[in-house]
């Protein structure tokens, strides 16, 4: 079994008011030296069966049509091997 992670971020040219609000709060909390914050979404898909090319292609379609709105968002897909249960 494997986990596929889809990260969805607003495109660079799209204003991110939530990220800006987080960034503005940082100096007040004593965090200096952070010049920009962008907020996104992370989806963890637990995949039954092998994560082969066909499975990744389907996940790509899913991300493009549903998880992300490509008018305003970009997405990346990566496979994360799930560690064996610790004895």
């Amino acid at each position: 079994m494997a986990r596929v992670v889809v990260d969805v971020m607003l495109k660079p040219e799209i204003l991110d008011p939530q990220g800006q609000a987080v960034q503005r709060a940082l100096p007040r909390l004593g965090f200096d030296g952070i010049s920009d914050v962008r907020q996104g979404k992370r989806f963890e898909l637990e995949v039954d069966g092998p994560v082969d090319e066909a499975a990744l292609a389907r996940i790509h379609d899913l991300a493009e049509s549903f998880l992300a709105n490509t008018v305003i968002e970009d997405f990346t897909i990566r496979v994360e091997e799930v560690a064996e249960a610790v004895k």
Binding site: I14, L15, P17, Q18, N69, V71, I72
Partner: peptide
């Protein structure tokens, strides 16, 4: 309607949140 691509563009959070 924008999510269904019947109309162009989309909506974000209000700029003042």
């Amino acid at each position: 309607l924008t999510e269904a691509h019947l109309l162009p563009g989309t909506m974000l959070r209000n700029d003042h949140l």
